[in-house]
Design a protein around this nucleic acid. Sequence first.
DNA 1: ATGGCTAAGATGCTTAGA
Length: 258
Amino acid sequence: MLIATWNVNSIQARLPLVIEWLDRRGPDVLLVQETKCPPGAFPRAEVGAAGYQVADHGEGRWNGVAVLSRVGLDQVATGLELAAPDGRVEARYVAADCGPLRVASVYVPNGRELGHPYFTYKLAFLEELRERVAMELAGGRAFVIGGDFNIAPKDSDVFDPAAFVGQTHVSQEEREALTAVIGAGVVDLADLPGQTPSYTYWDYRQGFFRRGLGMRIDLLLGSRDLVGATTLVEVDRSAREASRPSDHAPLMASLAGL
DNA sequence: ATGGCTAAGATGCTTAGA
């Protein structure tokens, strides 16, 4: 089983690249974030022609998450529908059964600035996410949640820790909230012994990708029964090198025996 | 090394991302 997570920064803008990538890498499950696609407008026909079923939780303009699967798609559920500071509910979580796995695609709020109302929202979202992960695990299936967590777990996950002091994504509060999510019973698959945690995001501006100035903010968290099955975790930088790329690259994990 | 990119839509600008 090959499972991947990718913040595509608009499924419509990225559709040719996503289809090419699905054909080339052939993941069994792709967890997508920032579809920026209104409900009902997801390009199901094109993705279906590539062999994938779609569970889409859409929203116009911003946010939006989806699960793409070629190994079945059942028991679709959305969640984490707490109100943002503007009072609106954002599309940031969708889960499904895909073959032997329970999976979830999550797009954690950015937080904007420390102390900002959207930062409070980010922390509240992470607390609800902890509860949601515990609930999914209680279902008893092997579980993988992947997505854009908008948190770099460690200082080594950003290109210059000194430049991030006082910024979001690296604060102790955010990292503690992520640790609590993981404490619900999952492990960071890219940070397992033998794996090499790699950047997954590079700003579009100022040649950050070319200069190697990235961050590891996209994660695949797996239930503990998957630790022994995880043979390879990799970031496919070719998708970031392509023309008209997302600012994130896909993160993939191979799960042997599933 | 904080936006000198990109995307959507209420478009020729604004808002958001991290």
